[in-house]
Design a binder for these strands. Structure first.
Length: 225
DNA sequence: CACCAGGCAAGTA
DNA sequence: TACTTGCATGGT
């Protein structure tokens, strides 16, 4: 069975990254709400810019569901300007807040109280929340075991031959979730390690990196499938 | 100057 | 269903 071997290899990869970079302790944030706001703001955007946007909201004492619900969208857009796509993201935050108050009276505790898979479907129904944002919210704000797949995950693991180039989000997520123990702690840090690895060693335009910590995967094996 | 960053929705064929 | 395009700031 391929499954068991893959499982061991995936854990070995994680161990390698963990040893090299240490436990990364994602997601930075003082509250679950802050994590959710960050998840939406970081869509196709450098985290550094998201931090500035969140700081603006904090300094204005507006980083709370009620405050952001009643804030006019253009004002919210002005606050989050450094995060880019500010008009789109302002609307997306508003859509989420509308959902939160409509379904859960504005309470994140109620939102996260129920079943994970059901909540995931509901989140995907909110305009502006796609699979990666939904899983980030579930995992990093709700501590529910959903593996987060991002552009680095696809790039790195397809280049190393684990998944197909054209596999969609669900296929890649299934690859990890069907092979790894479903532990929040593990999923949390595994995704963080992948993003960290990508930032240093796996840029889009460069094919494969010599100094990649995962180079051991090709020892005694051929490149190309 | 070009390219990239912790995506997603809407439009087109 | 499978591409394409708009969204936008800030760092390298």
């Amino acid at each position: 069975m391929r499954m068991a071997a893959d499982r061991k290899l995936l854990l070995r990869i994680y161990g390698t990254l963990r040893k090299k970079f240490g436990f990364l302790d994602w997601w930075p944030g003082d509250s679950r709400f802050e994590v959710i706001v960050g998840a939406i703001l970081t869509q196709n955007t450098a985290w550094k810019n998201v931090e500035k946007a969140i700081l603006n909201l904090k300094q204005a004492k507006e980083l709370f569901p009620k405050a952001m619900l009643r804030m006019p969208a253009p004002v919210l857009a002005k606050r989050i300007r450094p995060a880019g796509y500010y008009n789109v993201k302002s609307r997306r935050l508003k859509y989420f807040l509308g959902f939160l108050f409509r379904e859960y009276h504005g309470s994140l505790s109620r939102m996260f109280a129920g079943d994970g898979p059901i909540l995931r479907e509901k989140l995907l129904g909110v305009n502006g929340i796609g699979p990666e944002t939904a899983d980030s919210i579930l995992l990093y704000a709700g501590e529910k075991p959903f593996f987060v797949v991002d552009a680095y995950t696809k790039r790195i693991f397809s280049r190393h031959g684990f998944v197909g180039e054209s596999d969609d989000y669900g296929a890649v997520q299934e690859f990890f979730m069907s092979r790894l123990p479903r532990k929040v702690r593990l999923f949390n840090d595994y995704h963080a390690q992948i993003v960290n690895l990508g930032k240093f060693f796996c840029k889009r335009t460069k094919p494969l990196c010599e100094s990649c910590p995962l180079a051991f995967l090709f020892k005694g094996k051929k490149l190309e499938s």
